[in-house]
């Protein structure tokens, strides 16, 4: 019942890894996604709680395997489709010519 994000107090996790002199973002796409999400929230496409809810609805194994911004990507994709802003095909497509992507690309 409790969702996979609700991990406070769970045991079995490893030591905390600290990256010295860490940059704010590790890749351009993370910065773009961060900004995109902030804009979508500001424009009322969805709110912060709906965003958190969308992350929490990730299948547990996917949640745990995903990096922080990969979780964001999953949530933003989910919400853009659910809010009717983009179609599932649009969200799934990379370049227009390769709109159909297989599971191997996930």
């Amino acid at each position: 019942m409790s969702r996979i994000n609700d991990i406070g107090g769970m045991v079995g996790f490893s030591a905390v890894v600290v990256e010295p002199d860490e940059p704010p973002f590790h890749a351009d796409w993370e910065a773009h996604l961060h900004a995109l999400n902030a804009l979508l929230i500001r424009q009322g496409v969805y709110n912060r709680d709906e965003f958190r809810d969308a992350i929490e609805r990730m299948p547990p194994a996917e949640y745990l395997a995903a990096s922080y911004y990969e979780r964001w990507f999953a949530a933003v994709s989910t919400l853009l489709v659910e809010k009717g802003v983009l179609t599932p095909d649009e969200v799934a497509g990379g370049q227009d010519a390769t709109a159909q992507r297989g599971p191997a690309d996930e």
Partner: peptide, 22 residues
């Protein structure tokens, strides 16, 4: 953190979504 997945593929998808939204 971000190195163990195909980062190029996700970068492309973020770019794609951004351009669609524009």
């Amino acid at each position: 953190m971000s190195g163990h997945h195909p980062s190029a593929a996700i970068a492309e998808r973020v770019r794609h979504i951004e351009s669609l939204l524009e």
